[in-house]
Every structure is written in C-alpha cells, then in structure tokens.
Write a protein that binds this DNA or RNA. Structure first.
Length: 577
RNA sequence: GGGUCUAUAGCUCAGUUGGAUAGAGCAACAGCCUUCUAAGCUGUGGGUCAGAGGUUCGAGUCCUCUUAGGCUCGCCA
C-alpha cells in the first residue's frame, strides 16, 4: 500500500529546504474533510524563507501540480496548503490492501527480535476477584495483544499477590476459625470470611497481629505447617481465578507471584551491601534515594523479613537474566506510582538500567459514586457478578430480537452469542477512555449498549457479515471485486475508507502510549461511518455492477478491520446478534 | 505540608509536537423500518475549555499563581 503521507512529504521537501522528516512531522490531517485529506501549514517556512505563509502555500501548490498521480487537486486557504487525494486510487489501494492482509492488517515487524514483558492482573490470593481487578486484567491483555501484533516477542506475567504478612494473618485465622468443608466448597469465600474475622478480632486483641507476623516469619523460613497451608490457599485460589480468565479468554505465560522471588532477595541484599547502599534506619534496612528526589526504599523490615519492594527488585534482576527484555511493563494501579519509582531507582543503582526499560503503566481507581471498594468491608462487585449481569441483559435483548426477526437461532447459539457480547461490553468499558482517569462505576453506564459501546461495534460487524453471507449465497465472491471504485466515490464511502486506512496508525499509537482507547476510538469512527454508509445506500440490491462491487468491497474491508480491532482488545466478534 | 494526577456541553469523555469555526457518545426534543440486522440512521438544542495573569503572528494545549478534587508520602500489598 502506498504511504501517501510519506510520498507527499518527499515531494514537498524537494521543493523547499527542509528535510523529509521535518515535512512529515508538519503534515497534518485537516479538521474537516472539506479541507482535503492532508494539509501543510506554512508558518514555519515563513520564518526562513522571509515570505508570507500564504504566498509560500501558493508557490508550493503550483509546483505540486502533476508531481504525484494520487493528488487530485490542491487548495490554498490562508497559510495552509490543502491536498485532496484521488478517491478512486486511494479507495482501491486501501481496500485491496486490507482484503489481502486479512488478520495481519495493521501488523508490523517493528518488534522483531525484541522481548516485551507485560505484568498484569496480579490478584491477591485468597481474596475475591472483583471489578477493581478488571482494569489491570483487561488493559494488560489489550497491551499484550497490541505489542504481539507489532511483532514483539511478548510474555504475559501474572505477578500473583501470594506472599506477605497477610498470609501470616490468614494462617493464624485459619488455625483459629477455619472450616475445611467450607474451604473445599467455596475457597475464596471462606478465606475472606476468616480474613475479615481476623481483622475484627485484632482490633480488640492486638496480640493477634504479632501472631500473624510469627506465622509469616515461619512461612518465609520454610516451616512445614505454614507452607502447607499457604500452598493450599494458593492452589485453591488459582483454580477460582482460572474460571474468570477462561471466560475473558486470557492465559498467562508465567504465574510466578511474589513468593517466587522471595528466595532471590538475599542476592539483592548482598549486591546492595557490596555497593554500600544498604543503611539501617529505625531497625529496618533501607536504600536512600535523595538524588532521585524520592523517599528511602525499605528492603528488609526490622524483623528481617522481606517486603514487596524487595521482591519487585529481585524480580527485575531475575527477568533481566531470563528474558533480556527490551521492555518490562507493569500494568498496576496509579496508587503504586511511587513504589515503582523507588523500585526502578534502586534497580538503577544496581546497574540494571530499569529507568530505561521498565515502565509503570498506571490506571485510575474503580469506585462507586460515594465510596471506595473495600474487600474488608464487603462492598465490592465481583467480577463474575459483573460478567453475569452483562451477559444476562444481552440475552434478553437477543431473545427479543429473535422473536421480532423470526430467526432460526437456537438457544445454545443464543447463549454463546450473549456470553461474547456481554463480556465484550465489560472489556470495552475499561478500554474506552484514557487509563489515568478514575472510573466511577455505574450499572446504568455499564449496561448502556448504545453508541460508544462494544455491542455497537459488534452489531456493525454482524451487519457486514450478514451482507457478505447473502452475497456469497447468491454466488457472488467479494474477493472477485477488483477495482470497484472506478466510478465516483461518495463522501460517505471515502470517509469510511479513510478511517479504515487509519487503523494501522491507531494500533501503533495505542501501543506506544499503552492506551488501548486510541484503537477503540478508531474502531468507533469506523463503525459509525459504516452504519451511515449502510443506511444510505443499498449494497446488495443494486443494479449497477460497479456499485455492487465497491459496496461489497467496503463490507469486506470493514469487517476485516473491525474483527481484527476487536480481537486486539480482547473482544470476540459474533457473526450475528 | 511535600510529591503526583485531574478540572472541556446536563452526564461520560476525545482534542497528537501550540494552528483553520473546540468534537463524539449518552440524556432531551423532532423524524426514519413494503428494501441487505432499528443494539441502527437523520436533524435540533446545548460551551466564559475551573479562575487570573504571562509567553507570541496564534493558547483548551506551554509557564506562574489561585481554587476544587483524586492518589500518595518506611516496616500492608
């Protein structure tokens, strides 16, 4: 496919004294399509050429005539040189490229030979998987997909919260109030029950906290009883998490949680000692970070046990050796921003160059309108509950549609489709906006399936597929439709194909910024443009064979891009709904 | 108090390195199913870009201050 912007930049560069790259950076897409497809602002040239921007634009406009065959015409509006692309050439080129690339559309080899690690999800063992975990899980998966698509060698790491003082508490609580039967039936529910009870009791009897620390010390020493219980809690929890991951279509390459790095901390401690970086402060061993403008980082607590920072530092060293990563991405909430700054700073002091390769991808809190989610207080929405609610509402809508449209959809197919759409709706909610913003959870918004939503994208895709199925049924293969855009391309068609053209760019930008919403917006524009097109002219029922060909080509290209875009987000498209 | 993020339409949000008349969705109102899926489409209304200064040909975007809010600031993760 032609790189239109690049060729334009080369042409303009040849007529001025600025480089290709500079021109490429300056070329922009005008705010309105009536102003053309590309625009070159002449402000910066005005300074060096000592001419008014407008006269420069006029000169450029004249010398550009006939230079490039895809340029239909140019227009000077004040200081801007607006460029209009030949619609036939562009539409044939772009749609042909998409139809040929299929699921490889928007992919690249920029990541060839580069290893990227994405750490995400990372729930705490023995605690319920609630919608607070959904953000990191969904965002992380999307980031994984994006980098994978760009050719990187990507590994998914689930850094389970399977260690720390809280397990001392859990062990203590279990020995006091645990119920084996309840644990076997609903492990996390039972563990949560005794965990909450422990906190209540500890308020009245502070010696419980001491008991918990005792058990954690034993656990870290490898004591059999504590280790056995910990292992049991861990195994049972993972089993429950797996059910959620399966529903979301997520698997991991590595489930090594915090516990895995515990025995790798002594090496970190001795490395720090070798460099004289470890100092004592109030009984704890810390690394001072004044030169980074950061507070000290605790490596060993005053009782000699490790802390999450030390485990994260050990993990960097371990991963560096195992993967020799190009990038190590942490999809973890914003509240931990300082923690990662400290961890990266300490790793830097150890010569691990963390600041050059480790990235904390933070995101906002999920909260109710008036309060925070708190596992301890029990005011949480479970991830499973959220998925079920969305799938349930979807089922109702499909059932109603099935009656109205009198389709032959079986109950089994209906529930399969509802599952995909409901889960798609959840995924979409966490990918639609920039990740920094807090999400105020609302069932109304969650269950709004109009407009800016996954069902809207999925519906559009299903429409495309329906038209294509009908075309095939009447022996028309859209792949045969070559050069369907010889006649006049309408504004609506051109608009849609321009959005399809921008798909690859949106993937690159989304990956670079770790912001799936950039891709989401592109898909939304595509869907809206397609629906407009779909509503305004018949595709199958048209006499003109060229119009039929171009219409089907648009359907084919749109469906390819929409499908691939949704898959990159983690949404499974459906053929009908 | 220090650090950090945020403030754009009634609500939820976009707005690339400063550039053309600040855009979507939802909600509201008015329309469109004898034609390929109405979870759709069309139209209307809706703005002192938190406030004040500054930088310049030009500021929602950059700088300073003020206000409001979120998160965070050593032995939890």
């Amino acid at each position: 496919m032609t790189d239109y912007k690049m060729m334009l930049a080369e042409a303009i560069s040849g007529m001025t004294d600025i480089s290709n790259e500079q021109v490429y950076e300056l070329v922009e897409i005008p705010p309105k399509s009536s102003m053309g497809e590309y625009a070159f602002p002449c402000f910066t040239l005005a300074k060096t050429m000592k001419k008014s921007p407008q006269s420069i634009a006029i000169d450029l406009s004249e010398s550009l005539i006939g230079k490039l065959d895809f340029i239909e015409r140019t227009e000077v509006v004040g200081p801007y040189l607006n460029i209009f692309i030949n619609r036939s050439i562009f539409c044939n080129d772009v749609t042909d490229h998409i139809v040929r690339m299929k699921d490889k559309i928007g992919s690249s080899d920029e990541g060839k030979g580069k290893t990227v690690l994405v750490e995400y999800s990372s729930p705490n063992i023995a605690k319920p998987f609630h919608i607070g975990h959904a953000f990191t899980t969904i965002l992380g998966q999307a980031i994984y997909n994006l980098y994978k698509h760009l050719g990187y060698d990507v590994y998914r790491l689930n850094h389970l919260g399977d260690y720390g003082t809280q397990f001392g508490k859990l062990i203590s609580a279990y020995k006091r109030w645990g119920n084996d039967e309840a644990l076997a039936e609903q492990p996390i529910k039972e563990l949560l029950r005794i965990y909450v009870k422990f906190h209540d009791e500890a308020k009245m009897d502070p010696s419980l906290d001491e008991e918990a620390r005792f058990h954690f010390r034993n656990l870290e020493k490898g004591n059999e009883e504590e280790f056995g219980l910990w292992k049991l809690f861990r195994d049972l929890s993972i089993k429950e998490f797996d059910a959620i991951y399966r529903r979301l279509g997520i698997t991991f390459d590595d489930m090594n949680g915090e516990s895995f790095y515990s025995d790798k901390i002594p090496e970190i401690v001795s490395m720090l000692n070798d460099r004289d970086l470890l100092v004592e402060s109030d009984g704890a061993r810390v690394v001072m970070l004044e030169e980074f403008g950061l507070p000290p980082c605790i490596i060993l607590k005053s009782d000699g046990t490790t802390i999450y920072a030390s485990r994260d530092i050990a993990a960097i060293l371990y991963r560096k050796r195992k993967y020799d990563f190009y990038k190590n991405i942490y999809v973890v909430g914003n509240p931990q921003a300082l923690h990662f700054k400290q961890v990266f700073a300490v790793a830097d002091k150890l010569g691990l160059d963390a600041s050059g390769s480790c990235v904390h991808v933070g995101f906002g809190l999920v909260k109710f309108a008036d309060m925070k989610f708190s596992t301890r207080d029990g005011n949480i929405i479970l991830q499973e509950e959220l998925l079920n609610e969305c799938v349930g509402k979807t089922s109702e809508i499909i059932r109603k549609n099935r009656e109205e449209r009198q389709t032959d959809m079986s109950d089994a197919e209906l529930s399969q489709i509802a599952e995909k759409i409901g889960i798609g709706a959840v995924i979409y909610t966490f990918c639609r906006n920039s990740r920094d913003r807090d999400i105020v959870f609302s069932w109304d918004e969650m269950l709004d399936f109009d407009g800016d939503s996954a069902p809207y994208l999925m519906y559009t895709y299903a429409r495309c597929r329906s038209v294509l199925r009908k075309a095939k049924a009447s022996d028309y293969d859209p792949a045969d439709a070559v050069d369907g855009f010889n006649t006049k391309v309408t504004d609506e068609e051109f608009e849609l194909i321009k959005y399809l053209h921008g798909f690859g760019d949106s993937i690159r930008k989304a990956a670079q910024a770790y912001e799936p919403y950039i891709l989401v917006r592109q898909l939304n524009f595509i869907a809206r443009a397609f629906n407009k097109f779909y509503n305004n002219r018949p595709i199958l029922n048209c006499e003109d064979s060229e119009l039929l060909a171009s219409g089907l080509r648009i359907c084919e290209a749109s469906s390819v891009v929409l499908e691939q875009g949704m898959r990159l987000l983690g949404i499974s498209p459906v053929e009908r709904m």
